[in-house]
């Protein structure tokens, strides 16, 4: 339960950074925080107290094994996170080259 709350707090910290920060790099950092919080939650979901690693070379009936699926999901989520972060940074860099600023309010031209 405490771990669940911790990951939610990390999620909200990331959301806070995205909403309040004017520097675009800090917004990108906020996204990384959100991703980490969700990945953390996934990793915790697969945890069982006192469990064996889920490698079935000699199957032992009655033993507790940890759940391998969340690790695969976390890997996929990390790959997607890599793509998102890379694309966001390249957008930020392009914007910086066009306008010469990382500040969202100086960049703003559209009405929203």
């Amino acid at each position: 339960m405490i771990i669940l709350v911790a990951s939610l707090i990390l999620f909200l910290v990331g959301l806070y950074a995205i909403i309040t920060k004017r520097n675009m790099i800090k917004v990108a950092v906020g996204f990384s925080l959100i991703e980490y919080s969700v990945n953390f939650l996934f990793a915790i979901v697969g945890f069982r107290p006192g469990a064996l690693p889920p490698i079935l070379q000699a199957v032992e009936v009655g033993k507790v094994y940890s759940d391998p699926l969340p690790q695969a999901l976390v890997l996929t989520a990390i790959v997607i996170g890599l793509g998102v972060t890379a694309f966001m940074l390249s957008l930020i860099l392009r914007l910086y080259n066009r306008i010469g600023s990382f500040d969202l309010e100086e960049i703003q031209r559209l009405k929203g």
């Binding site: 939650l41 392009r94 914007l95």
Partner: peptide, 27 residues
């Protein structure tokens, strides 16, 4: 162009918040 990059950034921020909400719900 600067406007298109800005629109892309704005769209990306909103879209990714949505995606992360969906991912959290999936978790």
């Amino acid at each position: 162009e600067a406007e298109e990059l800005e629109a892309g950034f704005k769209y990306m921020v909103m879209g990714e918040i949505a995606s992360m909400m969906i991912l959290l719900a999936i978790a």
